[in-house]
Nucleic acid binder design. Structure first.
Lengths: 235, 235
DNA sequence: ACAGGATATGTTGTCGGACAACTGGTCGGC
DNA sequence: GCCGACCAGTTGTCCGACAACATATCCTGT
């Protein structure tokens, strides 16, 4: 019953393992990590698997391989920080305070603008789906897994309504990070404020097609999440 | 003298080739692309190379491989559109009008906010480097390669001054796309308006530490670029 | 005849070994 | 002391084989 649905190709596990090591700073930028043969032997897999894992990390901008020189960790500025996997890896350890602030700063820039667009462009189908997600949240609560899933979906539909592919893609990335921070909130915070009323306000604003109200509601929502998250990190 | 500095491992070329085919719509989402053995033979490389290329594409969210089922092109919503490589691949063919509009919409959301932050947080070092880049632009002109490089750098320094890693990463991604659209502007437009005065305004606003002026100047700058680009696409 | 399971088949996943290409450092010559 | 040639080590590529696994097919039992 343990829902062990996880697909687990070896190269994916290895990529994740090395990726986490780089993202959390165990391998610093500029350093050269062990040779492919060493990595293969220490992980108990073949060189092919290690190479495919390294290619994945290279595709995300984390590393750079050159013959004879070895595989070097690239500068942070070259990392593709908006990659969902990489964002998730970042939050494996204790996420640095500065990074969490960067994340909320970005959300504060993107999501209010997206909510504005959604209020103007939303179709009735979007309104219906958002209403359904909101109902699930109200019934299941935000502590339950399915309540959180509905929360995710609620925000995804907003981005979807903007009809902007790039914003939708950002949604996926930011969502991955938010999911990770939510873990911390629920683990360390004693008492979380109920954000469902705020969601209701946002839903009403988008349903009414009121961009200004949608922007305001989104800002309030993010501010509350930020305060809760930061107080959890200090504890 | 052709500056053939490009490092060209085979798996990178193959990844780019297949990636372009997917990004430009030659392989539509949902379709299953040829088997690894077929791809290897048709491209004249070994299966290892093809597999590493496919891993790179999978890392960017483009494809999904499962035993027996083959390798399937994932839905566009799953693509990591903010990946610099993928953005560049998108602009290989004729970029769809809707996508260009999405790009400018995103720029209009992110860059004014970033300019605001930069005006508040910029150090004297940043001001100095921006001033230098501006001088190069004025001397070399925006048509010359080094002038365009200085232009890129000018905008990168602004993002850098925000001290927000995620915004910096976005800078790299958007920069890659803007570079691609610039090609179209210069190829098809008969007459480009001179954007250097606008850059000077933006530079002055950031130097003075005036967030509102920085936001306004950035908006003007993007609007002009959008008009020029769209008129080029219609021609 | 139909349903369900066993089986066949083809694709990806992993392995091991081998050699080539390239590059960075080292050593020697000038 | 500087410069060039050599050398060694790492990544890049190739080959061949087998295992795991999901889909499709076929067969068996009711």
């Amino acid at each position: 019953m343990t829902e062990q649905r996880k697909r687990n190709p070896a190269h994916q596990s290895i990529a994740r393992e090395i990726g986490v090591a780089i993202a959390t700073g165990r391998y610093l930028p500029g350093t050269i990590l062990p040779g492919e043969l060493d990595l293969a032997e220490s992980r108990g897999v073949s060189r092919s698997v290690v190479r495919e894992a390294l290619r994945m990390l290279a595709a995300k901008g984390l590393i750079e391989s050159r013959p004879k020189a070895g595989t070097r960790v690239r500068a942070r500025a070259d990392w593709n920080l908006l990659d969902p996997d990489l964002l998730a890896w970042m939050f494996e350890g204790e996420p640095p305070m500065a990074f969490v602030e960067s994340l909320f700063q970005l959300r504060m820039i993107v999501e209010p603008a997206a909510a504005e667009l959604a209020a103007r462009l939303r179709s009735s189908r979007h309104v219906g789906r958002m209403g359904h997600a909101l109902e699930v949240m109200e019934e299941a609560g935000l502590s339950s897994p399915e309540g959180q899933a509905a929360d995710q979906q609620f925000h995804n539909i907003i981005l979807e309504a903007t009809a902007n592919d790039l914003l939708i893609s950002l949604s996926g990335s930011i969502g991955a990070a938010v999911r990770a921070t939510t873990l911390f909130k629920h683990r360390k915070a004693k008492q979380l404020r109920d954000s469902i009323p705020l969601h209701r306000d946002l839903f009403a604003a988008i349903t009414d097609g009121d961009p200004a109200a949608a922007r305001a509601a989104t800002i309030t929502l993010i501010l509350q999440a930020q305060e809760d998250t930061e107080s959890s990190l200090k504890a």
